[in-house]
Design a protein around this nucleic acid. Structure first.
Length: 129
RNA sequence: AAUGCAGCCGGCCUUAUCGCUUCCCGUUUUACGGGGGGAGGAAAGUCCGGGCAACACAGGGCAGCGUACUUCCUAACGGGAAGGUGUCUUGCCGCGUAGCGCCUCGCGCGAGACGAAGCAGGGCAACAGAUAGUGCCACAGAAAACAAGUAGCCACGCCCCUGGUGUGGUCAUAGUGAAAAGGUGGUGUAAGAGACCACCGCCCCAAGGGUGACUGCGGGGGCACGGCAAACCUUACGCGUUGAAAGGUCAAAUAUGUCACGCUCCCGAAAGGGAUCCUGUAGCCCGCAGGAAUCUCAGCGUGACGGGUAGACUGAUGGAUCCUGGCCGUGAGGCCACGGACAGAUAAAUGAUGAGGCCUCCGCGCAAGCGGAGGGACAGAACCCGGCUUAUACGGCUGCAUUUUUU
RNA sequence: GGCUCCGUAGUACAAUGGAUAGUAUUUCAGAUUCCGAUUCUGACGAUGCAGGUUCGAUUCCUGCCGGGGCUA
């Protein structure tokens, strides 16, 4: 699989998993997005990601689709940062901005979030627990 | 040529890299390679109609909801086409007349303005019935719907006689009001009045024309019958309910159920009849059909073997289809032939980054052009179609009207 | 996706088609008090938007806009 590919199986679709992520997952905030994450069981093959934009922030479907596509593109081009992580994660990106921002800005946010995740999971286990 | 109104059409293009999705072929079933396809005119609002599906359904009446000029188109429609009628506006012709119009109280138009009618062009119309019935018409005003009789005017009588009062005539005059009971001009009269006359309007009958809405040659009537049905209502026609989260197939886990049939009382040997109550007929009644221990949940008996959540597949993309051409029709549209394959996602694909061109806007410039801005307007399929409504940068086309210029 | 209901002052509610849209509360000002609270007086403040029917619309009709509820 090419390193920039983003197959359907890498998307988060199962309702139970999503429920678990929103109930028990950890999260942190960046200026434009809220990021939720949870460790997958060890038999999982991929990370799984979900992108969401609230209908409250953007009334029109065109704008919501545009923001989601840009976030997904940012993850697709930068997901290699997570390649060396032994665990597999479920991640949800929830857009919290009120206006549409250029792609470059959104991509940099995704890079920051991935770096932060790496930092969290590479800490000693004592602090992680 | 410009502007305005009405209608119609298009609504960025080419290319590179990295990706997403679907179909086909190949390797080979891990995935990879090659090829084809991949948002709209509104995909939107969900306002109508239909397909499709499940459920329900003897039939009739009432209620409810919807529609409402005519004919046609259509699978159907509350949609569309053509026509009729009404109304608004512009222009023209004749007739009658001296003022007329407006929110600004000052302006505009004017001796043929303005008025009512006619003709022509364009726009608009939820456009059945007010002579089936009921109801409403505030304030103002004499009076608001079987006209009335306040003031005024006129005649006559009486009195305390520059005036008052009574009886009669009259609606021409009267602030008002959305609307005042045909209009304008004349004759006439004590004063007046369709009382009478001319023109116009209105009502009734009606030859002829038209599929029909409607039209109206001609004749009659002095003229009665205000408006509101997007008030109740009347008439005519139509409407079963629920929506793809419908419905169908497979099926972990969990639980042991699920479905069908039978079981009231009285009379009768039986067939059958009767009684009370309940259920269904998705509003009510009649009628029809079915049922019955008791109870809040039912239980018993007999027979059958699956039912079903998460999830997956299907429904689901070839259809009232699209392109081109021909024929028929005033038109909406219909018929025929040739050709094409043209989204199919499902926590939901159709994207991102560059390059070049095109377009629009802004700035500079006489111009050519130069620089900057604009993911270039509105907006993202969710079972599928036909419409309607709403949003829409910019560009193009057609018709009509006005103005200017040229011939 | 489908169905359904509702929009009136800042808030909660009224208003047969009829004159200047009413009541309570909030806010502001004044009075009362040594100062507050309470009370009294007064003021400001609204029919979601655009059309239509009507002489006249919060009300009737149509189209938009916004909000709520039900349905797996």
């Amino acid at each position: 699989m090419g390193s920039f590919a983003f197959h359907r199986s890498e998307r988060l679709k199962r309702q139970k998993l999503i429920q678990e992520l929103f109930n028990r997952g950890s999260y942190f905030y960046l200026p434009l997005v809220k990021v939720l994450y949870l460790t997958l069981p060890p038999e999982a093959a991929h990370h799984q990601v979900l992108f969401s934009v609230s209908k409250r922030s953007f009334k029109r479907a065109v704008d919501r689709n545009r923001v989601k596509r840009r976030m997904r593109e940012g993850y697709r081009l930068n997901k290699h940062h997570l390649n060396h992580l032994p665990q597999k994660l479920v991640i949800a990106y929830i857009y919290t901005g009120r206006t549409i921002v250029p792609s470059a800005e959104l991509h940099s946010q995704v890079v920051v979030s991935l770096g932060k995740l790496m930092a969290i999971y590479q800490r000693p286990k004592a602090t992680n627990a």
